[in-house]
Amino acid sequence: MSVPLLEVEGLRTHFFTKAGVVKAVDDVSFTVSKGEVLGLVGESGSGKTMIGYSIMGLIDPPGRIVSGRIVLGGRDLRALSPEALRQLRGNRIAMIFQDPMMTLNPVLRIDVQMVETILAHESLPRAAAMERSRAALVRVGIPSPDERLSAYPHQFSGGMRQRVAIAIALLNNPDLIIADEPTTALDVTIQGQILYEMQKLTRETGAAMIWVTHDLAVVAGLADRVCVMYAGRIVEEGTVADVIERPVHPYTQGLLDSVPSRTARGVRLKPIQGMAPSLADLPLGCAFRDRCGRSIDACLGAPETRMVGDLSRGRAVRCHNPLPPVAVLE
């Protein structure tokens, strides 16, 4: 395998609140190769957004990256000066946020918000920056871009705003785009369009992408590989086909059983019992233990990440008692 574009290793991002230490991201490792789409799946509060913020260097107090390495194109981002990191943000790595209604500044025109993104990273005549902004709007499928450039965010629908945010993320041709559930707040039809366009755009530009979602079905059509998160940890990792067709972690299995699917009509859904534990007060051992139908005595101890199956496929699971049929390689 070639040198990955992004390498996250042993990342821990904790929030030091009055109620205790919230381990939002706890010992997370993964890699993203050039041009690859990595799906990051997990239920609400599992720490997906905080992984994105950690990579971008946007964690604010009381939160802090406690340990770990984040290496982008050979450079350790945690060792960079604030100014060097600023130059990477929006330039080499871009992020699209969850809620399109909140991410654009309500009192600034779209052209201002686009042009500034370009001028923050290179000196360019205004007209050229304007032209590039226009082209970016066209690229994400916004009709009559000239009019739209001089409009304000409130004149756009949610779907259009998210397209603008995507256009902004694409402006400087980043190597990596972190898309934080960009379609969750949108209608299903708009969701589909945006998914399709994002897929096309990453293919055209060769950008790698981390696609954050809580919806395994979205990931199925879009991503190359998937990481499944539970309570701040990655519990299973593998290619989309492997994880969706042959999940090995009971939590992944539970997620798949709790969504309706076309093929299994009439089959009873089996939602996961119980609730996700509080990140400030995680039980010792496996955090999924209390909700898991396969828990054994060993689950009282924390599971380590183990490779499973054919090594070349990069499958890993963090479970003492993973599902068959794939045998665990010691």
Partner: peptide
Amino acid sequence: YVKFARAKGL
């Protein structure tokens, strides 16, 4: 929008 502005590298 402030966080997004930071994410843009302003």
